[in-house]
């Protein structure tokens, strides 16, 4: 078991190194940050001096190793754009993104699971088919379009939800939360719906497929023969058997949602990490971009590793298969 975990952790570390390497390759192709930082009045010599002091004239390998060395000590440097510590910048925005992602995840479960059950047990009826059809729209509409539509309807026409921002926030230590104020909760509604829409349809379809599978199985037939009430079979016994893959997928998708959130954040001016990243890209703020990519991949890798290890704990066959 120990060997298995060590192996997994080693793999995770390799993935992180590879991500940092790819990130650096991309930065080299992305252009020259000094040209973006400098104003029109700056002379060529000053630009060259700045490039030197930022270490941009060093070889690719030197820059990469320096970055990895510093990052391992938790030092991501300071932002080219505003001279602030990168780790601080990201830590300030992390709660905003996490709250958005968590609320979106909860929404997707609370709405997606019942809808999935409904469409499975009422298969063929008009309302179930209609839901199925609507869910295609949910999967295929890009999230920025959904965001703009929501703003148009609920902010501009109905005037019941704010179009942008995070409302008032309350600081709990280093974590700033918008969940404790009315304006913070109001501001969360539209972005969370916009982010969860895709996830809702995904979960609905997954539950539907699983549910139909389970409803055909023998134990359901036995239960029915025994005279167990229909709703009890459906929601108690059958649903329980569908949830394993749903939970796995939800856990894995938290990482994807954090990454996807950047579009939602840009549309709603949600002050999260994605917003920070988009701005860093336009400014070629390499320290911020590098740190963001590393932290996102760290979250992905951690989630994957935890799921892998958890599976191995549950299912001994996996442990032996990888040995």
């Amino acid at each position: 078991m120990l060997v298995f975990i060590l192996k997994r952790l080693f793999n995770a570390a390799m993935v992180m190194l590879a991500v940092a390497f790819l990130a650096f390759l991309i930065f080299r192709a992305a252009g020259d940050p000094v040209e973006i930082m400098a104003n029109d009045q700056m002379s060529i010599e000053d630009k060259e001096a700045l490039r030197d002091s930022l270490g941009l004239n060093d070889s690719f390998v030197t820059q990469y190793l320096r970055f990895v060395g510093n990052a391992a000590r938790g030092d991501f440097g300071i932002s080219y754009r505003n001279g602030q510590k990168v780790l601080g910048l990201i830590a300030d925005r992390f709660p905003a993104t996490m709250e958005l992602v968590l609320v979106a995840t909860i929404l997707s479960l609370v709405i997606g699971i019942p809808l999935g059950v409904l469409t499975a047990i009422h298969r063929g009826r008009w309302h179930a088919e209609a839901l199925q059809f609507v869910s295609i729209i949910g999967v295929s509409l890009p999230s920025f379009v959904v965001g703009i539509l929501l703003i148009l309807v609920f902010s501009v026409i109905l005037g019941i939800a704010p179009a942008f921002g995070r409302g008032e926030v309350v600081d709990l230590g280093w974590w700033s939360t918008g969940l404790l104020t009315p304006s913070g909760r109001a501001a969360l509604v539209l972005p969370a719906i916009s982010l969860s829409l895709y996830q809702i349809t995904l979960i609905m379809r997954l539950v539907r497929a699983e549910m139909m599978e389970v409803m055909r199985s023998d134990f359901v037939k036995f239960a029915r023969a025994r005279g167990v009430p229909r709703w009890r079979i459906q929601f108690r016994h059958a649903l329980k058997n569908c949830l394993m893959p749903v939970i796995t997928m939800t856990a894995m998708n938290v990482g994807a949602l954090i990454a996807f959130a950047l579009i939602t954040e840009t549309v709603f001016q949600w002050p999260g990490m994605g917003m920070l990243f988009i701005q860093a890209v336009t400014f070629l703020d390499i320290p911020v971009m590098a740190a963001y990519l590393c932290i996102i991949s760290f979250i992905f890798v951690t989630l994957n590793t935890v799921v892998d290890i958890a599976y191995a704990v549950i299912d001994p066959r996996l442990r032996h298969a990888t040995r």
Partner: peptide
């Protein structure tokens, strides 16, 4: 208040 998206 910065709002970077033009439509927002």
């Amino acid at each position: 208040m910065p709002i970077s998206s033009p439509s927002t």
